[in-house]
Structure formats: C-alpha cells, structure tokens
Design a binder for these strands. Structure first.
Lengths: 247, 247
DNA sequence: TACTATACCGACCGACGGTCTATAACTCAA
DNA sequence: TTGAGTTATAGACCGTCGGTCGGTATAGTA
C-alpha cells in the first residue's frame, strides 16, 4: 500500500470525522476499529499512533462535541447588558436554536444520536457537555440569587435540574422516533410541546419566579424542530448494508 | 467433562445469579460470557440453550431486578386508606427504605451499581424499572389531580420528573463514591441531603402543594444510607485479579 | 549526507461472542 | 421394559474484535 503522509492535525480531525460518522450510523460498539481505519484510509498502526485506544477515540470525540456546543453560548454569558433571568432565558433559547439548526442541517445526526445503541456515545458527549455547561449555569443562577431575581438555596442543584430537563427532553424525542408513523409523530410532537411547557413552569416555581418567566422556546418550536426532517437531508429508512450482524 | 443436569428453572436462576455477580463486579462489557459459564460451571452450549445472546442475559437480569423492585411497592399503591399525597409520600419513603436496606445488606452491590463501567447495565435495569413504576406514579398523580390535592396539567410529565429526581440522586451518589476519602464522603453526604431537600421543595411547587408537603426521607436519612457501609459487608478496595486487561 | 524523530504500515495475537454437531439424560406411551 | 422423542449438556470451532509489534518511509536538522 502506498504510504500517505498528512499533517498530524488534519489526520487527527479526519479520524474524528470518520469515527463520528460511523459511531452515529452504527453505534459505538458496533462500529469496529477496522471500519474506522478503512474509512479513514489508514492502517492500524497509524491509528494507534494518534489514539491510545478505541475508548480514547470516543473520549476525544465527546470533547470535540462539547467544545463546539460550548462555543455557541460563550457570548451570552458574558454579555453585561443582560440580567440573570434574561441570561438564563438566552441560554435556553440558544440551546433551542442549536437544536432547530441541527435538525434542519443534519437531521440524520440528530436522529441517530438518540438510537438506543448510541447510549454510550451519547452519555460520553453529554458528560463532557455537562462539565462545560454546569459552571456557566451555576454562575447565572448564583447571580440571580444574589440580586434577588431567583430564590433558591441550592444553585448547583437547580443547575443540575435544568440540565436534567434538557436531557429528559432528548429522551422524549427518542421515544418520538421509536414510533415512526406520521400519526405517532404528531402525537409525540404534542407530548413534547406539553413537556416543554411543564419544564418551563417547573423551573419558574423552583426558582421562585412568577409563572411564565422562563421561556425555553416560543410556542410551536417543538413542531419546528420535528418537522425540519421533511426539509432536511433524510436518513435512509433502511440503512443498506449493516456493518456487523443483526441490529 | 461429567454431564450435570439440573432443573431448567434452577439452572436459569443460577445463571442469572452468577451473571449478576460478575456484571456488577466487572461491568457488563468486561465480564465475558466465558467468565459467566465458568462461574456457573456449564458449557457454552448449555448457556445458549437458556439465553439467545449475552444481550438477552442482560435483559433478563434487568427484568428480574425490576420485578423485585416493583414487588416492594405493590401494597402501598392499592391501599385504599391513603389519600394521593400520603400515597406518593409512602411510595417515595418505600424507595428510600429500599435504599437503606440495600446499603446495609449489600453495600458492595450498591457501590458497584454506580461505577461508570456499569452504565449499560444500570441503564437497562432502570429502563425496566421505569416501565413498571411509571404507570403507578401516573395513577397516583392523576388521582391527586382529580381530587384537587395536586395541581398540574401533565401527570405523565410530573411522573417522569419524579423518576428523574430518583435517578439524579443516584448520580450524586456516584459522585460521592468517586471521591473516596472520609472527608470527601462527608462533603458528599451534606451535598446529598441538600439535594434531597431541593427535590422535595421542587416537587411541592411543581405539584402546587404547600412547601414541606412532600417528604422523600426524614432528615438525616442520607447519612444513614451512606454510613451503612461501615456496618455492611465492605467491597474489597483493590479487587484482586482483574478479569480482563486494564480498567 | 547522516542522523533523529515522527508518521505510517500490516502481519500477528489472544480473547471475544456466537454456532454447530454430537450425545447423555430424561419422559412417557406401548 | 423398552425404545422413540425431546430436552439439556458438552466442547470444538468460527469469524471478528481491539490491540501489539517490528519494521519502513518521510520530514526536519546539522
């Protein structure tokens, strides 16, 4: 085989790209290292030059995801114009916005992320993302407590609850995918809107705010996310040749 | 090898027992099928006579866990004496009680359950348990809404939140274990007490109840759970010969 | 040009989950 | 009591996996 040398950073990013595609398509467990190196067009030896193990590859991938997610919210947090409530709402809105865009641009990614075989992958990404987001959330809530906007004795706890709600939303989405028919999807969308509304009110009350202070998304935003798949690039319903044995 | 025949149900339970021990000790991924059948003293063929795959074994194990967990709360739910709030509190108290007892009787199990390598195992068990518990919770909340005790427009959503809180408590416990020193443990215990208190108030407010209506556990119960390990059978700090390669 | 550090190759390894054929042990009707 | 049929067990075997290793081509430096 011809020997191809590339700039290490490029090689590394390429590896992450191919790994991301394969992990999302088949799941972390079912996508084999050989698949990854075949896709990337390199040898085993080259791979282990860049990553200590398959696990390390997963870790690096999760970090990259988290870094990208974090980049989007940096400005909001340090905007001195905003009061804590506005800041919290802006953060939640940003997260919503990211979801809408993801859904529109990369529906396949969005969909696969919630498939059960991606539990491990998803968990890693989420762990990394939480680690990044938690301090930001805590800081916002603490500011709000200090200036009397929020009333709670446990900012860290509330921050965790906020992130839990975000995660739980994903679970509801996953269930929506589990169905499949358009009718199922419609029901799922309504359940989701309802759930988002519940989380808004729950957060209001946990933070000691008047109802309707927290706005995760405008009414109808869930539908906007979910129906984006019609316009976005669709994932093949029957991904043709499975890489390994039965699903 | 001598051929040993046992009653199928006994054999199956034995397999589950050994699998449970090994999965908890080493994690689902790292405990191999060969380990399981070696522990159970049977052949590959015998194993595959009882379970279609390693995955199916995991599923069966999760179901058994869920069944056992469910058995403990059956009486409460159908006790006609209790009003919805008392019923909900009884359910939460029961879950607390179960944790205290587990901690005292089988600390090792309790501890291993939260190790990161047991994510998959834990998730399966929890999925099965949730499936069982969710309808019960929903039923209780719906009753409360009907008779005016609770005020919420989304009983299913609130039930999910209650279960999320239960899960999140486990996460906090897991973090407590991640530390290790007694000082760390003490800090973790205080964080947990605080967190439980937050969840109580959060639930009060989400359900439109006066503060202090929901009682997950008596004050100090977290400490009771966590310090139970002193009296319970301790897990070896350095599990001697790892089954597979590096942790 | 000679030397070193880095990037890369691919044969090889033990262990894994899973399959298959053979057969010992039970069941029960005749 | 026997023997046909079914169920439970054994263990050799298979393809693939993640990971290792000895070696080679390339880039940088002097």
């Amino acid at each position: 085989m011809p020997r191809i040398v590339k700039h290490p950073e490029i090689r590394r990013e390429e590896l992450l790209d191919h790994a991301q595609a394969l992990f999302l398509k088949h799941g972390y467990d079912k996508a084999s290292l050989n698949d990854v190196i075949a896709a990337a067009g390199i040898s085993k030896g080259a791979f282990y030059h860049y990553f200590a193990s398959k696990e390390a590859l997963l870790e690096a991938l999760a970090e990259r995801f988290a870094r990208q997610a974090l980049a989007g919210v940096q400005k909001i947090v340090y905007d001195p114009e905003l009061d804590p409530l506005a800041r919290l709402n802006a953060l939640l809105a940003q997260s919503r916005q990211a979801k809408v865009e993801t859904a529109a641009e990369a529906w396949a990614l969005f969909e696969t992320m919630f498939r059960p075989e991606n539990l491990v992958l998803f968990h890693r990404i989420n762990l990394a993302a939480s680690k990044s987001f938690s301090p930001i959330l805590v800081e916002i809530i603490r500011q709000g407590v200090d200036d009397g906007t929020f009333r709670t004795f446990d900012p860290e706890g509330v921050a965790d609850i906020v992130m839990q709600f975000g995660l739980a939303t994903h679970d509801v989405i996953a269930k929506a995918f589990a169905g499949g028919s358009d009718a199922d999807m419609d029901i799922a969308i309504e359940a989701l809107e309802r759930r988002v509304r519940l989380y808004e009110i729950a957060l209001d009350r946990i933070l000691g705010l008047p109802d309707d202070s927290i706005r995760i998304g405008e009414p109808g935003y869930v539908r906007a996310v979910m129906t984006a798949r019609r316009t976005g690039p669709a994932a093949s319903a029957t991904p043709p040749p499975k890489i390994r044995k039965g699903s």
